[in-house]
């Protein structure tokens, strides 16, 4: 957080599905290198908010300004479709809960990682492969699996591959939708450890949607608690979790099972 300007500026964002509320009155700023967790129960509008922020679901109101690499502030929904798609596959990343949504299951792991490089014009096979190998190493996938299809990978490996695929172009902002959902506890722990390392090392900003407060505690600097489409509480993660103000947040924190 050495830069003096935020990366993303969201004001009064709202999304309605017809007359039904998805989320409303969401305003926040995200700074470079900062990890923001959005927590809340199912149906509280977390995913709607994430999709609205990540240019996949046009919001009904409000604006989402992003500071481009050239320092210009642009409303992501005012970008042309070509610019938006380019932004999404170079400067952004999106890690889906289900790796099959974010990966090409029928092409090899190496090609999955290399796709973004080829999309931005890399035409040297040797270089693409070397970069892919490097990234597989960083997400702890053995080098001899580079030519295997993700279909033959375990859930945890698929999720790590998806992360490598997203980070290969050096994005500045990564969206994650329940990145550890569907993984068993030990694999979750490893993935979180890896994510925390990568985020710190690369200075990534990230917005993580999760219903798992432990994930939020480990990964995020700040968090927002959502209920019924509204942000009811926001603040530093440790503050919110240790000293929740809203009755709902208190309920949420106290409902974690203790082993």
């Amino acid at each position: 957080m050495t830069t003096e300007q935020p990366l993303l500026r969201v004001s009064n964002l709202a999304k309605y599905y017809g007359s039904r509320l998805g989320c409303a009155d969401v305003s926040f700023e995200l700074w470079p290198g900062e990890v923001l967790a959005i927590v809340g129960e199912s149906g509280s509008g977390k995913t709607t908010l994430l999709n609205s922020l990540s240019a996949t679901l046009e919001p009904s109101a409000g604006e989402t300004l992003y500071r481009m690499r050239d320092g210009q502030w642009r409303n992501i929904y005012d970008l042309s479709e070509a610019e938006r798609r380019f932004l999404v596959r170079t400067d952004w990343g999106f890690v889906h809960q289900n790796p099959a949504d974010g990966l090409r299951m029928t092409v090899s792991a190496g090609a999955n990682v290399g796709e973004r490089l080829m999309a931005v014009g890399d035409r040297h096979y040797g270089n693409i492969r070397a970069t892919a190998l490097d990234w597989l190493g960083r997400v702890e996938i053995a080098a001899d699996r580079i030519d295997d299809q993700p279909r033959s990978f375990s859930g945890g490996m698929r999720q790590r591959l998806q992360i490598a695929r997203n980070l290969v172009t050096g994005p500045r902002l990564v969206f994650m939708d329940e990145p550890t959902g569907g993984l068993d506890v030990s694999v979750q722990a490893r993935l979180l450890d890896l994510l925390r390392g990568l985020v710190g090392e690369l200075g990534l900003a990230a917005i993580v949607v999760t219903h798992d407060l432990a994930v939020a505690r480990l990964l995020s600097h700040r968090m927002m608690v959502m209920k019924d489409g509204h942000v009811i509480e926001a603040g530093l993660t440790d503050r919110v979790l240790d000293d929740p103000r809203e009755p709902y947040t208190q309920l949420l924190v106290s409902s974690i099972l203790q082993v």
Partner: peptide, 15 residues
Amino acid sequence: EYGLMHVKLYEDIAR
């Protein structure tokens, strides 16, 4: 957006 076309050629070389 023709990066994907090269993914196919990449797969060929990898295999």
